[in-house]
């Protein structure tokens, strides 16, 4: 197979993969974040303690995580049709992808939120903050670096899942690798696709790590990539001095 032919096949497949992962990822974020939050808040000792709701959510999440993805794709076909009007194509694959990723992401969100020091919540309570304020001002901002890592992990898992979307004619890079590389013995082409997947996953991971690090203010951590730090316009005079000091340090460091 020529390089031109490979490219001809790879570009549409790349966009299919990115489309599937992007839309499913967005849906996962929108539904999984509140779900993870509820898992923490309704838990025993939580701000909205409700053991019944917590149990039900826990069971739903566990069942969702137990079903093998390949079975999930087929099982939710009726639901997919209802949602997208079709049971074929990459658009149809987004529905099972999101359903598979939501419980996974919700658990990661739960873990991230539990890392927030209970003392901070106590401090907010002592200030007279209500549940809403505690969530908005402490739980979410303090766990943001971990949440960003959770998003990264979920997106990468989604890329993995998306390779199985070929079952519903979902296309994408994984499907291409199976159809050409495995079934037609185009081994070279298969490795090219695998290499592309490696590149996508690596770039995603790097971006995620970078964002998480930049958001993390614990200690005066300085990322090796901190040159990319946005130089915010100094808001107050003392702040300006501080920024300059940091820049000087960067210049002098090897």
């Amino acid at each position: 197979m020529t390089w031109e032919r490979m490219q001809e096949l790879m570009w549409p497949a790349t966009w299919e993969t990115l489309g599937m992962v992007g839309i499913a990822g967005l849906a996962t974020l929108v539904i999984g974040l509140p779900l993870g939050l509820l898992l923490v808040l309704t838990d025993k000792g939580g701000l909205l303690q409700n053991v019944a709701v917590n149990r039900v959510l826990g069971v739903i999440v566990n069942v969702g995580r137990s079903i093998p993805f390949i079975i999930l794709i087929v099982a939710v076909i009726p639901f997919t049709k209802l949602f997208t009007g079709t049971s074929l194509g990459w658009q149809a694959a987004t529905v099972p992808l999101a359903i598979g990723a939501i419980p996974f992401f919700a658990r990661l969100v739960e873990t991230a939120l539990r890392e927030v020091d209970g003392g901070l919540i106590e401090a907010l309570k002592a200030m007279g903050a209500g549940t809403g304020a505690i969530v908005r001002k402490t739980l979410l901002p303090e766990s943001l670096p971990s949440l960003v890592s959770a998003v990264t992990t979920t997106l990468i898992a989604l890329i993995g899942y998306s390779t199985m979307a070929g079952v519903v004619g979902g296309g994408g890079l994984g499907d291409l690798a199976v159809r050409y590389g495995y079934q037609r013995f185009e081994t070279a082409f298969m490795w090219v696709i695998v290499a592309e997947l490696v590149i996508i996953v690596t770039v995603l991971q790097l971006l995620g790590d970078l964002t998480a690090r930049r958001l993390s203010r614990r200690g005066d951590y300085r990322s090796p990539l901190s040159l990319f730090r946005p130089r915010k316009a100094a808001k107050a005079a003392p702040r300006a001095e501080k920024t300059e000091a940091v820049e000087e340090d960067l210049v002098s460091s090897p």
């Binding site: 939580g46 901070l120 007279g128 209500g130 549940t131 303090e142």
Partner: peptide, 25 residues
Amino acid sequence: QRAGRELREARRRIGMVFQHFNLLS
């Protein structure tokens, strides 16, 4: 777990400092 509105308002008039500071990082 959850304070009523009046209690929350009363808490705003009581300051508290902690052993481990409990500042938002």
